[in-house]
């Protein structure tokens, strides 16, 4: 049961990361605009896009799930900071997706805490 729940959460977090990662890597106009506002265009966009791709891979690879979840939590905290301080949330569902992903990744981390902490 625990394994099923974990896989659902891992797939959910990975799927939620795919859209933002794709738009950053492919230089979508929306993404360029956001990173221009943050003063991180283009390097910051590519760095964060690559980190997001790494998190997706780790979330789905055996023995790397907890690392992936840790990366995902970090990305979501960064995104929350960006949207809270500079970008705002507007009308799009991005804010909800971020919160869902943060909760999902945090749950993965909690359930897999023994993988991260040395005995």
């Amino acid at each position: 049961m625990r394994a099923v729940v974990l896989w659902i959460l891992q797939i959910l977090s990975a799927v939620l990361l795919m859209g933002p990662a794709w738009s950053k890597i492919t230089s979508s106009s929306n993404s360029i605009e956001l990173f221009q506002t943050l003063g991180m265009e283009p390097y910051g966009r590519f760095i964060i896009g690559i980190i997001e791709c790494g998190a997706i891979l780790c979330l789905l690879l055996p023995k790397m799930h907890s690392i992936g979840a840790l990366m995902s939590v970090s990305i979501m905290i960064g995104a929350l900071i960006a949207h809270t301080t500079h970008l705002g949330f507007g009308d799009n569902p991005m804010g909800i997706m971020m919160v869902v992903n943060l909760i999902s990744s945090s749950l993965i981390l909690y359930l897999r805490k023994d993988d991260l902490l040395n005995e």
């Binding site: 943050l38 003063g39 991180m40 910051g44 840790l70 939590v73 905290i77 960064g78 500079h86």
Partner: peptide, 14 residues
């Protein structure tokens, strides 16, 4: 100063 410094912010929050 620079949004890049939030990489450290995120690290220390985690």
């Amino acid at each position: 100063v620079s949004f890049y410094l939030h990489f450290f912010t995120v690290g220390f929050i985690v």
